[in-house]
Amino acid sequence: MMETMVCNGLCKYYGSVKALDHVDLHLEEGRIIGLLGPNGSGKTTLIKLASRLLVPTEGEVRICGELPSPVTKAMVSYLPDRNYLPDWMIARELLDMYEDFFTDFDRSRALDMLNALSIDLDMPLKKMSKGTKEKVQLILTMSRHAKLYLLDEPIAGVDPAARDFILRTIISNYDESATVLISTHLIADVESVLDEAIFLKEGKVVLHQNVDELRDSTGKSVDEYFREVFKC
């Protein structure tokens, strides 16, 4: 089994704050993996390190065996936790841009999804509702045939119908040689789509397990078990 992402003793410190503290992880292909933890536990830091928006203080992260670089960026499809697209562009221009920059971008797949939601291709992003904007971002991200999808809080603050759309889009678009890493603090909402769960607590991995095994061994849902581990 090919390992899509590997972390070895990965650390990121901001001054004296340890955002990530010696993280070791092995993520295999064909999995949907939940990166779960409360706010400030280091989820976004880990994702930024993997997409090389940050450089580690110590240790390393490798994507398909390579240190983060333009080469790995071509294999990683990253959905940040904010509006990151130029908001004056219309949907069609965004498709052009993704096609220009990412050779693995599948325009027809994106068009199908945009049409299914009857999103106007000639509407500038900034005129779209917050929910539509987020859907457009997700569609662009999932329309790439990437090796690794890094989705940072894709379901935070969306209504249940949008959440279903998002999860369904994720399930239907990744293929068996890819890995999807979804960071969230809303575990109950993503639980049913996960293969594996990673619990992150104060920058450390406290659990990385197959979700079915976790349910079997604890007799609890991931959400319940999470609440127990992170009890205040």
Binding site: I171, S192, V193, D195
Partner: peptide
């Protein structure tokens, strides 16, 4: 597998299993 996974909202690997 993938269709059923989509319909019920679970991971395709789970349906496969």
């Amino acid at each position: 597998v993938r269709d059923l996974a989509m319909e019920v909202g679970v991971n395709p690997n789970t349906v496969q299993k």
